[in-house]
Nucleic acid binder design. Structure first.
Lengths: 194, 194, 194, 194
DNA sequence: CATGAATGAGTGTTCATTCAT
DNA sequence: TATGAATGAACACTCATTCAT
């Protein structure tokens, strides 16, 4: 009858969570497989049933966090929305992701800022998640609402600053109130609108 | 003796440079003391004459890079300059630092983005280097030229985006031409001006 | 049921063949149970239905290869043959075994040369397979045709050299042609005849 | 003055001896670096000061044992000796090596018989040690004393049998007395003389 | 001051074997 | 019978740091 124990998705998730937590709090260089295993409540050898090796574990965590991020980012978004409204929706979604899903956001920020953390393939894969925002910007540019500049500049001056605010808030240097958020959005929008 | 001090300082600098290079290119987790020593042309044991331990080496590298950064940032700056002119001067200095002193800029970016890389004391120490910019912003706010928002927001939307552009340029996704730079400054300024 | 037994035996044989192949090509230290299982097309756990543990698997493979060897060695042999004729028949059978059943021959050679590979019990068991040759030698000695020396010496100078020739042929250092074989037999015979 | 502790040849030798002993008695697959280190009285990490990795340690042990073997084999030998006398000298030297330097002989035998133990480069390097014997055989063939057959055959029927006798003696199946040795030499010589 | 040798503690990973189904 | 998941113990190897000179 070939019955057998089935690969357990809960363990996979426990491993990803443990990795997320340890990399964020101890740094990549102090997140050994043994600690990850212990925190996930499994044997070190078990990790290798679910992931090829440590790099693969990190890559997969990156990709799944990115996917979770983009689901969050485009919640309630529709390409039918007016450009500014659509942009504000996405921008606020991303801001809330960074405020509420702190661990995931922090991990993604590390991966995106450190060249040696994620391999190039995974990075390219992760980039695809932002496509609807790029499409929206293109529409805004065609409609003469958004400045005709590289999407890298658009990203740098609207989305990327949120990473800094998240980091500062995490370090208790700064609190991102609703008022601050409104000011921040105005700054973001002013930097790219025509 | 003078000769001796100079010779020693050369070793110290060689060690800092080797660390800078290895951490940037291999990542913190593949920059062992033995490689740093080899690249600097000294014995591993010698590192411990100049630095307490690896963390101290990283901290010192951070502080000296920050100092080098702020010297660059405030070159030709004087508090007598008009707010916008002074800001543009500093902003462009920082942009050029990130384009020309890639290794230092990249290292500083890593340190500032990753919580676990340098200790809190060094981070606080490093922050002081930006004081003239903070003073300028305060003056701009008093003069009604710059929006009355948290300096964290001002930083997030004007200076921090440059880190992203540097990273993208380094990954050959994007080239930061003089034209792009002008557009970028406009975006930065628009985001904070009244 | 017959069908079942055959099917089971196929798995057993597949496992023995996989072990033979992997130990010969990768060495004992790179022939893990997981690879053996994969090559045999079964689960690692299944191995333990057919064999007690890895050592038992190796022992059994040794014994069955030895049995296959001796069947080959004494093909067409009858104690009625004249001593020299009988000896030449066996000698040539063994030579052909080593040339044609390379994998089995190679595995047996490893086991016989390395003390730690199979346990003493299996080794003693395996020795029995040569009995007809020992009997023939004894007859030859009684008939005054073969020198009255220890059977270990007889073996060392007639049969054992074939292992070397097989190894050299396998490493492409040397080709064992029919002509070489004739010369080799003459050498073997000259070393023990009176 | 750059004084320093000097690399200690005694440790290197202790490591080689420990390896020799463990591989012979436990087999390659149960001679872990940790045990080797313990037996040599050093830390596991110390091994890597003297050898690149485990394979390098084994290779070096092979080469140095081979060198020690050939020194033994050609003791008192001179190309001026008559062919048979020279051959007997070498043959007996080798026999005594196998009887007296049991551990080295046993290790060399394992390496020569198992394809996966030594890398090809080291094996080729090790082969050079037999050159004087090959030269002697060539001379014997020119003088019409030794049969005109491949040197692989000459080796197979004269030298190689000694490995078998050594193994049997080690397993207490057989004792190689002076009398046996004389008989063995006669067999060896008869197998190749014209 | 400067060194290369030395190391204990740890790294990522593999393995023979067992377990639950 | 047969399985894939699971694992503790081990593996080869590396590291930041110290030691003796």
């Amino acid at each position: 009858m070939m019955a057998k124990r089935i690969k357990n998705n809960e363990k996979r998730i426990a491993l990803l969570n443990a990795t997320l937590h340890l990399v964020n709090n101890n740094g990549f260089h102090d997140a050994p497989m043994s600690k990850i295993a212990k925190m996930a409540g499994v044997s070190p050898a078990t990790i290798y049933i679910y992931f090829e090796n440590k790099q693969d574990l990190i890559n997969k965590l990156y990709l799944e966090s990115k996917a979770s991020f983009s689901e969050y980012a485009f919640k309630d978004y529709s390409p039918n929305l007016a450009v500014k409204n659509g942009f504000e929706l996405i921008w606020r979604n991303i801001a809330h992701f960074k405020l509420n899903q702190v661990e995931e956001a922090n991990f993604l920020s590390q991966c995106d800022n450190i060249n040696t953390m994620i391999d190039e393939t995974s990075r390219q894969e992760g980039l695809k998640n932002l496509q609807p925002l790029l499409d929206l910007w293109e529409r805004g540019q065609k409609e003469g609402i958004i400045k005709n500049i590289s999407s890298y500049l658009l990203y740098a001056f609207t989305i990327y600053p949120l990473a800094f605010l998240m980091t500062m808030q995490q370090r208790n240097n700064f609190e991102l109130t609703e008022e601050n958020l409104a000011e921040a959005f105005t700054s973001a929008w002013n930097s790219i609108k025509i």
